[in-house]
């Protein structure tokens, strides 16, 4: 793998002027589309994008409006990783060089229905960058619980009443599950820290083989937040410690951000309609879970 220092940094000043995800029909203020747009600007023209069912495919390819301004394809829902692997293999077999294949899949398409294919893709070390834009529920079908929906969340299948008191499980530990494959490069990111995300995509671009980025991407529609705060809320999530920024590289974990103090979890939660119903006890449970996680990360990853 190319050493990080050798890779010229991509930022707002020097990135390509070209837009590759344009004219799409995503909700106003969509965090997922920020992730897709920025990643494609780093990856550049010679990119094949593969997207399973999910918001980004649903809003990008409605005939005749083709919002991907480079090669892109909608894949089978459970098979985005394998279809991308097929693209990479086919292009290689045809003698193509100097191209990248990328998947943009939601949390459901990644941690749930698409997981088997993703695991196979990493196991084979197929030359694919898999980006999971995590908006913490099945948003395309109208906000249902996924394996990455956090504790307490109210969704249309976890209605936060007497019998189903919102989501009762914590997020699946996707990053470490991916890292446990001994993948060459995996990272977490948030659209609230865009330069960090750009750097990670840039690093993954230069991996020959499988790489993975789990990017936290807000959804104003599903989260009950104003459209203009999409970036801010994704930053808050990191600052209050519920989302962490880390990398797994050469068999080692690395915690990219280790704040001395976290900002208020309660403030973060109370800004969002999906958490409005949560009791003090619920919030306490979220905080305890956060602290346990950080204790472990600080002990093992620093």
């Amino acid at each position: 793998m190319t050493k990080v220092l050798d890779i010229p940094k991509v930022n707002a000043k020097n990135m390509t002027e070209k837009e590759f995800f344009y004219g799409h029909k995503a909700c106003a203020g969509c965090g997922g589309s920020i992730a897709v747009r920025l990643a494609l600007k780093v990856l550049g023209e010679r990119t094949y994008s593969a997207l399973p069912a999910g918001c980004m495919s649903a809003v990008g390819f409605i005939y005749p409006q083709m919002a991907f301004n480079s090669n892109a394809i909608i894949t089978t829902f459970p098979g985005s990783a394998s279809m991308a692997a097929g693209i990479a293999a086919g292009a290689k077999a045809l003698g193509q060089e100097d191209f990248k294949t990328v998947v943009f899949a939601g949390d459901g398409g990644t941690a749930d229905i698409g997981f088997q294919a993703l695991s196979g893709m990493i196991d084979r070390n197929d030359d694919v960058l898999y980006i999971c834009y995590d908006n913490e529920a099945y948003m395309n079908t109208g906000i249902q619980k996924s394996g990455l929906t956090p504790y307490g969340t109210k969704t249309t299948t976890t209605p936060a009443g007497q019998n189903i008191p919102g989501t009762v499980t914590h997020k699946k530990n996707l990053f470490e599950i991916i890292a446990a494959h001994d993948i060459q490069y995996a990272a977490t990111a948030s659209i609230g820290y865009p330069q960090d995300f750009l750097n990670k995509v840039n690093k993954a671009k230069h991996v020959k083989g499988a790489s993975f980025i789990h990017v936290y991407a807000s959804c104003p529609t599903g989260w009950g937040t104003p459209t203009e705060t999409s970036v801010e809320i994704a930053k808050d999530a990191v600052d209050c410690g519920l989302i962490f920024l880390a990398e797994y590289e050469d068999g080692e974990y690395k915690l990219n951000r280790n704040p001395k103090e976290f900002r208020s979890v309660e403030d973060y939660l109370k800004k969002q309609g999906r958490f409005k119903h949560m009791s003090d006890a619920d919030i306490q449970c979220v905080i305890e879970n956060r602290d346990k996680k950080w204790e472990r990360m600080r002990k093992n990853w620093l």
Binding site: A28, P220, T227, E228
Partner: peptide, 24 residues
């Protein structure tokens, strides 16, 4: 989110055909 802001000779310019007015 929509990539509608562009660089125009040292100034920013917005493609109002595709801006959704999200306010980010």
């Amino acid at each position: 989110p929509d990539g509608t802001i562009m660089k125009d000779n040292g100034k920013i310019k917005i493609d109002m055909d595709y801006c959704k007015g999200c306010g980010v």
